[in-house]
Design a protein around this nucleic acid. Sequence first.
DNA 1: CAAAACGTGTCATAGTTCGTACACAGTACA
DNA 2: TGTACTGTGTACGAACTATGACACGTTTTG
Lengths: 117, 117
Amino acid sequence: MTRFGEAATATRQRLRETDRRYSLRQVARRIGVEPSYLSKVERGQVAPPSEATTVRLARELGQDPDVFLAMAGKVSRDLQDIICKRPALFAELIRQLKDAPDHAILHIVREVRDGDW
Amino acid sequence: MTRFGEAATATRQRLRETDRRYSLRQVARRIGVEPSYLSKVERGQVAPPSEATTVRLARELGQDPDVFLAMAGKVSRDLQDIICKRPALFAELIRQLKDAPDHAILHIVREVRDGDW
DNA sequence: CAAAACGTGTCATAGTTCGTACACAGTACA
DNA sequence: TGTACTGTGTACGAACTATGACACGTTTTG
């Protein structure tokens, strides 16, 4: 039912088609949770896991942790910390970019990467 | 002891010098919490309040809610929601801006505001 | 066909979050 | 001088978060 659970199941199933090490149980063991818990998470029977567990799951499935966290409605601690150091500045920037098209944001990312300040 | 508590007390005391309606009790009543709770919050005896309460306190004291939230180590729900809609993009942007100087970020804010994309 | 692996149901719970309720002693002030 | 307001200590608790333990029936595999 949940966005997060669906994505986790789908990703794992896809990997499993070619590699039987991606059973629910084995993935659960590798990321350090009980199989029954991962099962409930995948089916949205419980809320998405903590940040740490979500990140371990994303990595295990070869996905972007930030994207998995986002599906759980969360923003990673390290991003929050960056924002919290200059809250007014980042708040304004982010709200400003709310409705900006993707390519505009990408443009800025490139501009900044090329360090033209 | 806490950054958050100190700022709250300091701001309130300053307002109080010229307006006795800014006693701890009266502020507590206006933002809808018990005086004893606000007292503990101000002295850092308990963790900073929830987002909603923090925002009410900030507004009551004429401060920027984002800044007060930041002192509590939090990022407001609405900003998180914006990020969660395009996690990869925003994650990269924010990490990229981590060490950028303030004026560079301000420059981008202005660029975006003037809508040159 | 037996053993291992599979996914899931039920129940329990330790820890954190976010406060309330009330009493008390000190201070202001009319 | 008494009453009304001040800040604070103690005690308590409801709700939520994030999981563990274990048993069960089913499927796969050697």
